[in-house]
Amino acid sequence: MSKTVLVLGGAYGGLHVAHALLKKQLKDVKVVLVTKNTHFYWNLASIRRIIPGQYKDEDILKPIEPALKRYPSTSYELIIGSAEAADFASKTVRVATATGDRTVAYDQLVLATGSRTPEPDMPWKASSTYEEVVALLKETEDKVKAASHIVVAGAGATGVELAGELGFEFGKTKEIILLSAGDKVLGGDIAAPAAANELKKLNVAIKYGAKVESTRPAAEGSGKTEVVLAGGETIATDLYLPTMGLVPNTEYVPTQFLNENKTVKVDEFLRVLETTDVWAAGDVVSKPRAGFMITQKQAAAVAKNVELALADKAPLVAKGLPVDILACAVGRSRGAGRMNSFRLPSLGVWLAKGRTLGLQMMGGYLDGGVA
């Protein structure tokens, strides 16, 4: 009797799991991949795409369907839609598509729907359709080009990298300010001093202790935005680009399977607690934290455990990365990072990440090479 593996999410985690299972050519197993976006989005490079004259849409967005056509048509199905409600008891998921809702039954379920930015008009995550992502990238690029004063809020990895891209391109012609809620960038990581120093070289001003409370339109007709800080100070800017926080895409998951942060509760096998056939990887887990390399490792573990479950075998403990790595590109020629407690040289970070923002790996995700 045929079995169905339902994979929710077509980004780094979900596409990885789908490829890993399809490459095995498991007998009487069908993989159903549900994704809202028809294209695989290399969002790691979105910060460079919004710089005029750099990456094009087709560089960081590639269609998913051609990547699956290498497999027998009976072994997979691609559904363009979004998960609306999961029922773990009946082993079904209601999926909203352009032609209406559809209920999909499964034998094994993988949750890999990722996360989104709190602000819906930022392109750092693929939380909408292909057409909407492309429009948002172009809109942001146009705003960057027109602005003479830009505020980047949030000094985590995305904020530092975004400020670095802006500083590299416009540091001598536009005023660029990075707001850090704490007294150091990168949450005080040991790579923080190096990152701050690289940003300074690019003429990016860092304002510490600057937690954003709210934003509001400035004087009518000015076209500016007022950024209100926790202490009451306001900064008027032509363009406000927030990078703070992530919201897990888990609204379709029954609340008893979520923790206080709305991420999925899993065991050491990355199996959702109190289930036997539901697995999760990536930003919906955020354990130990959200991250590209962590997602890749988790996706491999989930794919293996799903394969074992289909064969009625016990799962394996999901192992984490052998080392803890943080790498931040700071512009198109420098970087900052560390491996465990060892600080990485700027040139090394540039070679590993900053030069292409990982685009050379995109093909491996599309054709399943990483799986």
Rank of each mutant, 00 (worst) to 15 (best):
S127V: 07
K36W: 11
G10E: 06
V266C: 10
G223P: 10
A194V: 10
G335D: 02
N259I: 11
I80P: 11
L310A: 12
E161R: 05
T129I: 13
L179F: 00
V370Y: 09
T243K: 03
T103P: 09
E175W: 00
K207E: 15
K201M: 10
E165W: 00
D59R: 05
T99C: 08
K262E: 12
G337C: 02
L178W: 07
A311V: 02
K313H: 05
K319T: 15
C328H: 01
K24G: 01
M122W: 04
T4M: 08
A210S: 08
L366I: 09
A191K: 03
G231F: 11
Y12I: 13
I325D: 01
Q25D: 15
L22F: 12
E161M: 05
T250Q: 07
R102K: 15
L241N: 01
Q296E: 13
L21H: 08
A205L: 12
A11F: 01
A301V: 09
I206N: 09
N43F: 00
G232Y: 11
P322S: 06
T215D: 00
Y76N: 13
Y71D: 00
A96L: 15
K224T: 02
I150V: 12
N305T: 07
H39P: 09
L326M: 12
R70F: 11
L111P: 05
L162I: 08
A157H: 09
L321E: 11
P118S: 10
E220L: 15
A230Y: 05
G358R: 09
T4N: 15
N305M: 04
T255A: 13
G53F: 14
S46P: 04
Q296Y: 05
A336Q: 06
L178K: 07
T295Q: 02
E260P: 03
A230R: 08
T4I: 13
P217D: 13
P315S: 03
I79M: 11
F88R: 10
A126C: 10
I235T: 04
A112F: 01
A153L: 06
A210H: 02
E198D: 10
A205S: 15
L78N: 11
G354H: 03
G358Y: 10
R338F: 07
R216Q: 13
L321N: 14
K262S: 14
A155R: 04
A290Y: 09
L15T: 01
L166V: 08
